[in-house]
């Protein structure tokens, strides 16, 4: 099977890779590029663990083909912190203990980042519906919602 050459931007850096036509972007990110922060919970678009931002859209990377990344911008959890300075969402997730096992966390952080970019002052209900594409089995979501509310207020103040 011939590889397709793809050129893309990941977390601000130029990235080039070869992939099979049937390979998902999730597989490419994890297995070819070593971005293991992007998680696979289902592979069918139902859990959100593989969430990334593609150009300006929140997508499940398991539903995108690697080849579709050509010329696009990709943001993953690995790009959220600036050096050793955590993104306010990351900081608030830690402070509120919004993670137990943490497998869902990268997906939630990316989904929340996308939500706050579009709606900097969401209500609780808007947060709950905004994050409804991400499954968490550990927390019951309470502390996740609070962490997002708190991060939103920090980000508005900043």
């Amino acid at each position: 099977m011939a590889g397709i050459a793809v050129s893309t931007t990941i977390n601000g850096d130029q990235a080039e890779f070869l992939c099979h036509p049937d390979e998902t972007l999730l597989e490419v990110l994890r297995e070819r590029l070593g971005l293991m922060g992007v998680k696979e919970g289902c592979g069918t678009g139902d859990c959100g663990a593989c969430s990334i931002i593609l150009d300006d859209r929140l997508v499940c990377s398991c539903l995108v083909l690697g080849a579709e990344a050509e010329g696009r911008r990709i943001a993953t959890v690995e790009g959220m912190a600036q050096g050793d300075k955590l993104h306010p969402l990351q900081q608030k997730f830690l402070e509120h203990a919004a993670l137990q096992c943490g497998i869902c966390t990268p997906g939630f952080l990316i989904a929340a980042k996308d939500l706050l970019a579009k709606n900097p002052d969401p209500t609780e209900e808007e947060i709950r519906f905004g994050l409804a594409g991400n499954l968490c089995r550990c927390t019951g979501y309470d502390k996740i919602v609070r962490a997002v509310q708190d991060a939103a207020s920090v980000m508005r103040g900043a």
Partner: peptide, 14 residues
């Protein structure tokens, strides 16, 4: 915690 919010924590498939 920090490893888990930055994507560095290694789970079974990582």
């Amino acid at each position: 915690g920090v490893d888990k919010v930055t994507g560095r924590a290694r789970y079974g498939a990582d």
